[in-house]
Design a protein around this nucleic acid. Structure first.
Length: 475
RNA sequence: CGGGGUGUAGCGCAGUCUGGUAGCGCACCUGCUUUGGGAGCAGGGGGUCGGAGGUUCGAAUCCUCUCGCCCCGACCA
């Protein structure tokens, strides 16, 4: 643990891996692309889950669980869907000592198997809307994997809903995208652009896909969440129908939306620094650590005081622990907690007690040591956590805004390819989009709602454009 | 699947060319000392050297085959 991390400037990718190892978030496993999520990493996921789950419940959704194994024939029912997912499927062909008559697919997403249930559950418009969410693991056979960002197996939630009208489905799609936006910005302190994906970037089987896109510290984009308006594509494939107010049978209008453990990768690449992990207080496994300083007998009074303070902090809902281990030098502990991303460190030793104060250090501002009277320490810890949450968002937002540019020619787009988010006019033709991708590696991220759409000329063809769209290098 | 790299202790590596029965740093364990930014000393535990086969009196080292992992591309949340 005494080793320093690779710095971001030297090698961003290695730095990312070093942070994950140093903060004990995850290990590689013996299965390619699959990772072991360690307690520190899983605690972040649990905090993400707890908050999002509450938000889903508030918007009327219920959790359910559907099988991991999906008959292959289900996937094949929706043409675009099967074409999109085929290369990524893992299949169970043998079980119970023999070959199966029909292979089972390990779910890459659950639209098909959930429609099988929707078909049974829904009879009339009175059963709508049907608002279901599932917390699950999924398997997608990826060529190239990266911890948290793209793993063969990942954890996620997938919302699946059915509605009476197309407008209701569209409203739901946008509502859940907004839930994601609020969660990303208020809980992850990660500014995102919410907007619509182009047809070539949309989900296989959807009519429209919306996403939230964040900017990482290397100026690459990360698609952090998606929400799809599925139209009646799956309903028609699975014959998911309801009797309408008009007495006739209609196919339901559906949505699906999801975020995954990829968010943890986004968290790391948005906020962490060369000293290690930085996590927003609202999601941090450990918010405060009290480090006892001193030798032998002189530690006892500090420890006794720390126990009191920790009890008060816990009562106030703060996740706190005390480090009274005398075996390690203080400095080593400081570096350790910085790598692990503990939000606030309180140093408490004989010198502090003599002055009735303690030293507080905020993780996103480690050079700034604050001396705080012990009587105010609990309140100060709480306010530091709140300030840190806000400061992290503001810092990330300032970075994103400083690396977002309008570009007005193809040459300029090429020249600035690695500079961040590039707002450019494009004629809407998928072929031009593909050409740009092939020539520059830049992809369209989305058409942000916040970006006022004014007509212009396509930077490649000079043809009319309805408005600028965001191009960026992406994960 | 193509290109490159690499497998020796938990991690990082040396040893391989020139075969002689495995070593270093960190981590870990015990004891003493130490404590306001990565501690010191002493002692200790842990590896059938990715796997299989071969050559040899003898293989981490040479030969053959095989497997895994990492990085770069095509694919993708």
């Amino acid at each position: 643990m005494a080793d320093k991390l690779t710095t971001r400037a030297v090698d961003f990718s290695r730095w990312y891996g070093d942070v994950i190892a140093a903060a004990k978030l995850a290990d590689n496993s013996d299965v390619k692309g699959c990772m072991v999520i360690r307690p520190n990493g899983y605690a972040i996921w649990e905090n993400i889950q707890r908050q999002l789950d509450g938000m889903f419940k508030e918007t009327g959704h219920q959790n359910a669980y559907f099988p991991l194994l999906i008959p292959e024939s289900y996937l094949k029912k929706e043409k675009e869907h099967v074409e999109g997912f085929n290369p990524q499927l893992a299949m169970v062909t043998h079980a119970g000592g023999g070959k199966l008559t029909e292979p089972y697919v390990l779910r890459p997403t659950s639209e098909t198997i959930i429609n099988r249930s929707f078909k049974l559950w829904i009879q009339s418009y009175r059963d709508l809307p049907m608002l279901i969410n599932q917390w699950a693991n999924v398997i997608r056979w990826e060529m190239r994997t990266r911890m948290f960002l793209r793993t063969t197996e990942f954890l996620w939630q997938e919302g699946h809903t059915c509605h009476e009208t197309e407008a209701d489905a569209e409203e739901e799609t946008l509502k859940m995208l907004e839930v994601y936006r609020v969660f990303a910005e208020e809980w992850m302190a990660m500014p995102v652009m919410a907007g619509r994906k182009t047809d070539s970037e949309k989900f296989a089987g959807a009519n429209r896909t919306y996403s939230i896109e964040a900017m990482m510290q290397d100026k690459k984009a990360l698609q952090a969440g998606t929400s799809h308006n599925l139209g009646q594509n799956f309903a028609k494939a699975f014959d998911t129908v309801f009797q309408g107010r008009d007495g006739q049978q209609h196919h339901v209008w559906q949505t699906s939306w999801g975020v995954s453990t990829r968010l943890i990768g986004g968290l790391i690449m948005t906020h962490s620094d060369d000293a290690g992990l930085v996590v927003p207080p609202k999601l941090a496994p450990q918010q405060v650590v009290i480090v006892i300083i001193g030798k032998g007998e002189e530690r006892a009074p500090a420890y006794a005081r720390a126990v009191q303070l920790a009890a008060e902090l816990k009562k106030a809902g703060v996740r706190v622990k005390i480090d009274n281990d005398e075996g390690k030098p203080m400095g080593a502990k400081f570096y350790q907690y910085e790598m692990e991303g503990v939000c606030v460190r309180m140093d408490l030793g004989p010198k502090d007690l003599a002055k009735e104060q303690c030293v507080l250090v905020r993780r996103d501002d480690i050079k700034n040591k604050l001396s705080v009277p012990l009587g105010e320490a609990v309140a100060k810890c709480q306010s530091l956590l709140e300030e840190m949450q806000k400061a992290m968002f503001e810092k990330a937002k300032a970075f994103r805004d400083a690396n977002t540019f309008e570009v007005n020619s193809y040459d300029e787009l090429k020249a600035r390819a690695n500079d961040g988010f590039l707002l450019a006019h494009w004629n809407g033709d998928p072929k031009i989009e593909a050409q740009i991708k092939a020539e520059t590696k830049l992809t369209t991220r989305n058409r942000p709602f916040s970006l006022k759409q004014e007509p212009g000329k396509c930077i490649v063809t000079g043809e009319p454009s309805v408005g600028r769209i965001v191009f960026s290098m992406a994960y």
